[in-house]
């Protein structure tokens, strides 16, 4: 009897997760239908976002999300791979431990703090070097890159560490240098894991709100240079959700939220199920 109740409690809780995820999609979809009816495809292809005119085109926000994430990846990926190589192949045990602790420290810092740092300390530097207001796509990309770097380096290192020692030793035994072993053995062997890890980091970056809200500008305008202020989906949501004053405005914001959820779901699913599953099955 109690057995049955306990079983049903656990089963219900487990099913609840599926239910919540489905519910999230349904709710976001329902609330965005008004905007979809009003704008159709224009919602994602037009960049005019004018609440006073009841016109909502999300192109600038979508573009900003993609561009800032792309920029962040462009900056973070080479450094993260460099750090991962350093950690797995060069650093002595003490440095590894020290770095491990640093990464933990950074993981403990809420992303809103990266945003504050970016606004107060990094934006002025960009302004001094490149002129302009400092706030914009470049600042967002850099802050985002710094924020995902520790996670990215850690997961890339973990992926590289799955290469069996004996395989690396075999290449060293043929007279390979460390770089030979890295490029010919470790990277081909751990390829799926490395790519999966990088895409997972991308999935996180695309939905990141607080680190970029400070430094992006929230201007609904497709930027013509990386120094221009612009916006992204999470930045728009963070800034405008509490200000929306019409049902179409709300509906458009829900449309943005749905777009973001679908984008990150797809990216994360590709990372997890295509690349990282391969790794899990391969071992």
């Amino acid at each position: 009897m109690i057995d049955k109740i306990f079983f049903n409690m656990t089963r219900t809780s487990a099913l609840l997760i599926l239910f919540i995820v489905a519910w999230i999609f349904v709710v976001l979809f329902n609330h965005s239908t008004e905007a979809m009816h009003a704008f159709g495809l224009d919602f994602i292809t037009q960049d005019e976002w004018a609440p006073n005119l009841e016109k909502f085109g999300a192109y600038a926000a979508i573009f900003g999300s993609v561009a800032s994430t792309f920029l962040a990846m462009l900056l973070a990926v080479p450094v993260a791979i460099g750090v991962a190589i350093f950690l797995s192949e060069i650093a002595h045990d003490k440095i590894k431990g020290f770095f491990g602790v640093s990464v933990e420290l950074l993981a403990a810092i809420p992303s809103v703090i990266y945003g504050m740092w970016g606004l107060f300390y990094f934006v002025p530097i960009i302004r001094d070097i490149f002129g302009g207001v400092g706030i914009g796509l470049l600042a967002a990309g850099i802050v985002l890159a710094i924020m995902i770097l520790p996670f990215m380096a850690a997961v890339t290192r973990d992926a590289m560490n799955t290469t069996p020692d004996i395989l690396k030793e075999s290449a060293y035994a043929l007279g390979g240098t460390q770089w030979d072993v890295i490029k010919d053995i470790i990277i081909p062997y751990a390829k799926a894991g490395i790519i999966g890890s990088l895409i997972l980091a991308l999935g996180r970056a695309i939905g990141e709100t607080m680190a970029v809200t400070f430094v992006m500008g929230n201007v609904h305008h497709t930027p013509s240079s990386i120094l221009d202020p612009t916006t992204s989906i999470p930045v728009t949501l963070a800034n405008e959700f509490t200000e929306a004053d019409s049902s179409l405005y709300f509906s458009s914001l829900f449309g943005l939220a749905l777009t973001l959820l679908v984008m990150s779901f797809v990216v994360i699913a590709i990372a997890k199920f295509y690349f990282l599953r391969k790794v899990r099955n391969g071992q």
């Binding site: 519910w23 709710v27 973001l260 990150s264 779901f265 994360i268 997890k272």
Partner: peptide
């Protein structure tokens, strides 16, 4: 697993609605 990496602001929007 996917939920763990999903954008947290979207959860906010969902709770706002419900």
């Amino acid at each position: 697993d996917i939920m763990m990496s999903a954008p947290s602001i979207v959860i906010g929007a969902f709770v706002y609605a419900v």
